[in-house]
Computed example of a mutant assay.
Amino acid sequence: MDPRIRKHAEIIANHSVNLQEGDNVVVDAHPVAEDLVVALHEVIGEIGANPFTTSQRTGARQRRAYLRAGDDEYETPAHELALIEETDVYIAIRASDNVTQTSDVDPETSAAHQQAHQPILEERLSTRWCLTQFPAPANAQLAEMSTEGYEEFVWDAVNKDWDEQRDHQANMVELMDPADEIRIRSGDTTDVTMSIDGNPTRNDYGEHNLPGGEVFTAPVPDSVEGEVLFDMPLYHQGREITDVYLEFEGGEVVSHSAAKNEELLTEVLNTDDGARRLGELGIGMNRDIDQFTYNMLFDEKMGDTVHMAIGRAYDDTVSEDNEQNDSAVHVDMIVDMSEDSLIEIDGEVVQRDGTFVFEDGFEQ
């Protein structure tokens, strides 16, 4: 086995989820990620935990068959919920043999299915959980890379010194954590402000997401004002959405458009009331992720980017005194901040054209 796969498994177990003897572990993975699943089982066995493997979350082919055959009426599956309720550690491994497998599933059907699974999502988020990526050929193809090149890209981003990355990102946490207002500007198309007053800023250094490489928090839901053009595309439900434009008033999306698959964006925004508000603001800081790959797990961590997510806010980014935005969706979208862009915190510029105030090359 490639030693990088074994190292990947060890980082998941020992760093991301702090696996302990006796833990009940669910490994949710596509069959093409079998090598990483095998390596994980080896590590799990050495630690003395109890593994169970499923492809429920990432098995797009069977999910497509089920959703296309259904009637858009879904209930929360009690047996799946019961499994997660007995789970201590949940490890999801992204990999695919066809990244557009669900592209012909009706968006309304996907939204209804997602809503029915909301209690399962909430239960998973209460475990020690990790989402990671195995470098499958289909994902390499989507990234327009060779399989070997994509493997190097993934493992360079994953198998790194996470203590060093944590310390680098702590500089941004120190700036954001006590802040009241953040303003994001990019070119003539993005100028948005939001309050983060009282909400904690989190340092993601490879725990829940592997790779990590961002600092993030939740905006106060009704504080978001302005407009954003997300100039980097995203894949959602097997389809590409490009040039997403959102206009916010009083925290809600009041106008939206997209150059491609706008109807899918509309369905996402119509999922529930919370889908029209922001649940996350994240600042990408992983310099080892140096190219766009159509994979949000990596793309949102790129240096020189900011991402915002419509929908659910994570529990640990909202203070007891602030409202938490709730939704069945959490959809991240990215703004390129490498040129003609800045981030202001309480009126002070802390990043200009992708360079932070605490990095060499920052210009006042």
Rank of each mutant, 00 (worst) to 15 (best):
F362T: 03
V27D: 02
T109C: 04
R352E: 10
R68N: 14
L131N: 09
L264Y: 02
S223E: 03
Q20Y: 06
M337W: 03
E80P: 06
G251A: 05
V37E: 00
S255G: 10
Y74S: 11
E34A: 00
D104R: 09
F356C: 15
L175V: 14
N209S: 13
T266N: 00
E164H: 08
T132F: 03
A259E: 12
T87M: 09
E86P: 08
G70N: 07
D273E: 15
Q324Y: 08
G45K: 00
D167L: 14
L142Y: 04
I93A: 01
R124L: 11
D243K: 04
Q364G: 11
H208V: 13
S146G: 15
D290E: 06
G59W: 07
R57E: 08
M285V: 07
L246D: 00
E73D: 14
C130Q: 05
E164F: 06
Q20L: 15
E108W: 02
P200D: 08
I11R: 02
D104H: 09
D188C: 05
D161S: 09
E359A: 07
A92K: 13
E122S: 13
M308T: 08
D304W: 02
I182Q: 00
D188K: 11
D177Q: 08
A179Q: 02
S55K: 12
E174Y: 04
N24F: 09
P219A: 04
H117E: 14
I283Y: 04
E262P: 00
E73A: 15
R68Y: 05
T271S: 01
A78D: 15
A78F: 08
S103N: 13
F248D: 00
Q118E: 11
T53D: 10
S257R: 05
A95C: 12
T190N: 06
